[in-house]
């Protein structure tokens, strides 16, 4: 593995607390993912690409923001790999690089919609803030 990739991999692993080598490649995360069709890289691919240090393509992918952070993959993974946490860690490294939050608590009230589930608000914070 290239040194830069190695470094990025260990950074993502440290930040997420996820051990991608626990994955047994069953694909249950992608089988359960409700945003599957919206994503360029699917949950099982996230895990595999982080494991092999191939993180560069993930950084520029829209998939980072398509993940609903519903954590269904985390709940159902038979190996306890927690793919959504990996997605989040990759996303954070992008947001941090740009050096700005995309969302502050003050922005929330005007965006609220009575039908919006609580989980979506939490998810938005996960996706657009440090």
């Amino acid at each position: 593995m290239h040194k830069d990739n190695e470094k990025m991999k260990s950074e993502i692993i440290r930040r997420s607390g996820v051990n991608p080598s626990k994955c047994m490649r069953c694909g249950k995360c992608s089988g359960t993912c409700p945003a599957y069709d919206e994503m360029e890289y699917h949950p099982h691919q996230f895990v595999y690409m982080v494991e092999s240090g191939d993180i560069e393509p993930l950084l520029s992918s829209e998939s980072l923001y398509k993940c609903l952070s519903c954590f269904a993959c985390v709940d159902r993974c038979p190996r306890g790999v927690e793919p959504a946490k990996l997605v989040e860690a990759v996303r954070l490294s992008v947001i941090r690089q740009q050096g700005a939050n995309h969302l502050t608590a003050n922005d929330i009230p005007e965006m609220l919609d009575p039908d919006l589930p609580q989980q979506a608000i939490v998810s938005a914070f996960r996706k657009y803030t440090k």
Partner: peptide, 25 residues
């Protein structure tokens, strides 16, 4: 691939699963 979830709907069972080799859900 693995089945992610099964939802009973009417007299059918909606099976959502991943096909890893075809890279499809």
């Amino acid at each position: 691939g693995m089945v992610g979830k099964i939802t009973p709907e009417g007299d059918k069972l909606k099976v959502q699963a991943s096909d890893l080799l075809a890279d499809k859900q």
